[in-house]
């Protein structure tokens, strides 16, 4: 079957073949193609250059491109694997694949660890956790006293930092999540199983059989 989609696809910077991306991720070829529809929408919302800029991610998450947020910044930084300030299609698909319901739990645990490891030291440190709690308070209506914040951070650290060395290492994090699986609930997006339903038009034009 011929492709009804634009031939311009092949010249989008960072575009990678859906067959290759499907082979490396839990997505089928049709799902990768449907994700390309989503990617095109996100990557053209402010600057139509086929790349997702930080403001475009913020616009999609908050409906407001000026609403800077520590956590959205972390997501952007982790998706921007090449660290060139933009998210390319391949980076988008590979990063989103961790959020697929069928992705290995170990990958979700590792990705969440990296989210919390703000300074990329290989550990989650107390100051990082406090900074994130304060950022959450800033973005929400929740009001907590500084004593309450200290108490929450202390309690969380006491539970997770089993060796008591003042930082949470990947092994401690893994154990902590296994006891508290709700902590990685946001690492699974049920939408990803229905992505071809969300963008059905592209499936008709698919070049490759799954």
């Amino acid at each position: 079957m011929g492709c009804l989609c634009s031939k311009n696809t092949k010249w989008t910077p960072g575009y990678e073949e859906p067959t290759i991306l499907a082979a490396e991720t839990p997505f089928t070829v049709s799902e990768v193609e449907a994700l390309y529809e989503l990617f095109k929408k996100l990557s053209s919302s402010i600057i139509d250059d086929g790349l997702i800029h930080k403001e475009e991610l913020q616009l999609a998450l908050f409906k407001n491109k000026n609403n800077r947020n520590l956590f959205a910044d972390r997501i952007f930084d982790l998706f921007d694997v090449k660290r060139n300030g933009v998210i390319e299609f391949g980076e988008f698909v590979r990063s989103l694949s961790v959020f697929h319901p069928n992705a290995p739990v170990a990958d979700k645990i590792a990705f969440a660890f990296r989210l919390y490891d703000l300074r990329n030291t290989g550990f989650i440190e107390r100051e990082e956790l406090k900074e994130m709690v304060l950022a959450l308070l800033h973005e929400s209506d929740l009001i907590l006293s500084d004593d309450d914040v200290e108490m929450i951070v202390d309690k969380s650290f006491k539970e997770a930092d089993t060796t008591g060395d003042g930082r949470i290492d990947p092994e401690e994090w893994k154990e902590f999540v296994s006891k508290n699986p709700s902590l990685i609930k946001n690492m699974t997006l049920p939408y990803l199983k229905d992505i071809t339903l969300a963008f059905p038009s592209f499936v008709v034009s698919s070049e490759v059989e799954d």
């Binding site: 998450l61 989210l115 609930k185």
Partner: peptide
């Protein structure tokens, strides 16, 4: 739930910035 009794990670995981389902909203 009383936020003070919650785990910091649980609180943080509710951030809108980490809620990628928003990407799929039309």
């Amino acid at each position: 739930a009383n936020p003070v009794s919650m785990n910091a990670f649980e609180l943080i995981s509710k951030s809108q910035g980490l809620n990628l389902s928003s990407l799929f909203e039309k």
